[in-house]
Design a protein around this nucleic acid. Structure first.
Length: 260
DNA sequence: GCGACAG
DNA sequence: ATCTTGTCGC
């Protein structure tokens, strides 16, 4: 696939103020409500054969693409794994030289190039992109999930293991029971009206076994064309039994293999 | 100046 | 993100 809005191609050589300015333009273009994103109910994690018709009833279920990166020396690799009905349709790998270091808030400018390289090789067209990175939970409401989502004008969501910014509505110190969701709202360090709902902390899995007493929640947020609540439902539909959504786990593994 | 900070 | 062995337990 090819970017629909080339003006949002992240330029690693731009100045930091230019990067931030682009993110502010991005967030105004981003849509944080349901629009074109697949229904969580239509996203199946496993194939469900239709015994009556001897065929699969999920022929045109949404195509969900997980995206993740890995690094080696001065090279960045990005893997995109396309899943439909819990079946892997395609896995592609992008590779570009590393341009800039990791800077909190500017992740898309470091990882955007390999991602674009990977998506250019994708032959199927995604109904949803799932990133290992923030969407609206971002200083300028323009995390990597929002950036790439708007760039291609495709529904996107972000999932992280750590919170970048924003304030949880409740303490996350105590172990949360599975399924618990805690709102993450805009505070002083976020360019948004204080209290704006940015995303959620979501306890996708807890007490995997008697030994592992505690698992941290993940942080989910809308990237583009998805509402906060729908983001939670989508992550829930994509993550049965694991902390992270299946597409992200597959992309993570694929990126590691891309290095070899 | 101090503290915070996705991957 | 990345550097890295074994080990405990389902």
């Amino acid at each position: 696939m090819t970017p629909v809005n080339p003006e949002f191609v992240p330029d690693p050589d731009a100045s930091r103020s230019e990067m931030k300015a682009q993110q502010r333009r991005l967030s105004s273009e981003a849509i944080f409500t349901d629009k074109g994103c697949p229904s969580p109910d239509s996203v199946t994690l496993t194939e469900t054969p239709d015994l009556d018709n001897h065929t699969s009833v999920t022929a045109d279920d949404p195509i969900v693409v997980g995206i993740d990166q890995a690094f080696e020396d001065d090279t960045a690799v990005s893997a995109a794994a396309a899943i439909q009905n819990g079946e892997i349709l395609e896995v592609v790998c992008g590779r570009t030289p590393l341009s800039i270091p990791y800077i909190p808030g500017l992740l898309a400018f470091r990882e955007g190039e390999p991602i674009i390289d990977a998506l250019a090789q994708l032959t199927v067209d995604p109904d949803l992109l799932v990133f290992d990175g923030s969407g609206r939970i971002h200083y300028r409401q323009a995390g990597i999930a929002t950036h790439i989502g708007v760039l291609y004008d495709v529904p996107a969501i972000g999932v992280t293991k750590n919170l970048l910014c924003g304030t949880p509505a409740e303490s996350l110190e105590e172990p949360l029971s599975e399924g618990t969701q805690v709102a993450i709202r805009a505070d002083e360090e976020v360019d948004a009206e204080a209290g704006t709902l940015l995303g959620y902390a979501l306890q996708t899995r807890q007490f995997p076994n008697p030994t592992v007493r505690h698992v941290n929640p993940v942080f989910v947020s809308p990237g583009h064309q998805v509402a906060p609540k729908t983001t939670i439902r989508l992550v829930g539909a994509l993550g049965t039994g694991y902390k992270l959504p299946a597409p992200v786990r597959l992309a993570d593994r694929a990126a590691a293999e891309c290095k070899r």
